[in-house]
Computed example of a mutant assay.
Amino acid sequence: MQGGSSHYFVGVPISEEIREVLMEWQKKLKQLIQYKTWTNPEDFHITLKFLGAVDSENITDVLRMLKEDAQKYPDPFHLKTSDLKFFGQKQKPRVLFMEVEDHPSLKSLKEMVDTRLKAADFRKENRPYRPHITIAKKWKPEQTGAFPLEKLETLKETMTLPVDRFHVFRIDPAKTPKYEIVETIKLG
């Protein structure tokens, strides 16, 4: 896309083990509730920073900023995952996700990414950072009826996620999966 812009974000990939658990959860949930968007298993990730539209000339600068002094990023670490949670009201949960531990190294990585990209005029998010892996978005209550909160209680899985890198992803809503890795930055 010469001169055009695409949407990008920075995120942490997940392990195959966690992907398989989330696929099982989706399989069970799809029998109970309707969501407009179910995350493609290849697109599961933990977002560090949403960049939005970035033109093809400026993405090169973004990648350079993120790669500068890469050895200053935290050393590789492990996160714990846990329960199925949601954003929104209990009666209308707009986003379903797997909760991820708010680990000090993850916070540090997020802050470093924010700081580096502030120089490129990407603003820091106003709301608190809540790391998670999105499973589904945009609940359709008119097709589902009451939301089965009690079923969420059964979907728990404490797992360990090794974090040794992060990616810059380009979003292509017309493709499946819709996230393409543009750059990989290793930790430590």
Rank of each mutant, 00 (worst) to 15 (best):
Q71H: 07
A119Q: 08
E150G: 10
I135M: 13
V62P: 04
L155A: 01
P74N: 09
P93G: 01
M98A: 05
E42G: 06
K124V: 14
H78R: 08
E125V: 04
K67G: 05
D75W: 05
S15H: 04
V54G: 02
M65P: 04
S15D: 04
G145Y: 02
D114K: 01
S5W: 11
E42I: 07
T115N: 14
M65Q: 15
K80R: 14
G52W: 00
P131Q: 09
R170F: 00
H45I: 07
S6N: 10
K175A: 13
D102Y: 07
A136V: 00
I171F: 12
T60R: 12
V12H: 13
T158I: 14
V62W: 05
T154L: 12
T160N: 14
Q89R: 15
P148E: 08
K80Q: 15
D61S: 10
I133E: 02
K49A: 01
G11M: 15
A53C: 02
P93I: 00
L32E: 12
F122M: 03
P13E: 15
P104F: 13
L109T: 05
K124W: 06
K85Q: 13
R130C: 12
A146E: 14
R130M: 10
H132P: 01
A53K: 14
E57G: 11
I181Q: 11
P128L: 15
I133W: 00
K156L: 05
M159F: 00
W38I: 07
D43V: 04
I181G: 10
L48K: 11
S56V: 03
D172H: 11
W38L: 05
A120C: 09
Q2E: 13
E150I: 09
V182E: 01
L48E: 03
R116H: 03
D164T: 05
K36V: 04
R64D: 01
K140C: 05
F147K: 07
E111Y: 08
E157T: 03
Y8K: 04
M65G: 05
V54H: 06
L32C: 08
K138W: 03
E42A: 12
K151N: 11
Y129A: 07
R64K: 15
K124Y: 14
F44P: 08
N40A: 08
R123Y: 15
I33T: 08
H132R: 10
E20L: 14
K138A: 08
L109P: 00
G88M: 11
L51S: 08
F50K: 06
L79W: 02
T81Q: 09
F44T: 10
K36E: 11
R127G: 01
P104V: 12
L161V: 09
F86C: 03
E101P: 02
M159T: 04
S56H: 09
H45P: 01
T60D: 14
D55H: 02
T176V: 11
K138V: 03
E125N: 09
E20N: 06
S82H: 11
S105P: 00
M112E: 09
Q89E: 15
P76V: 11
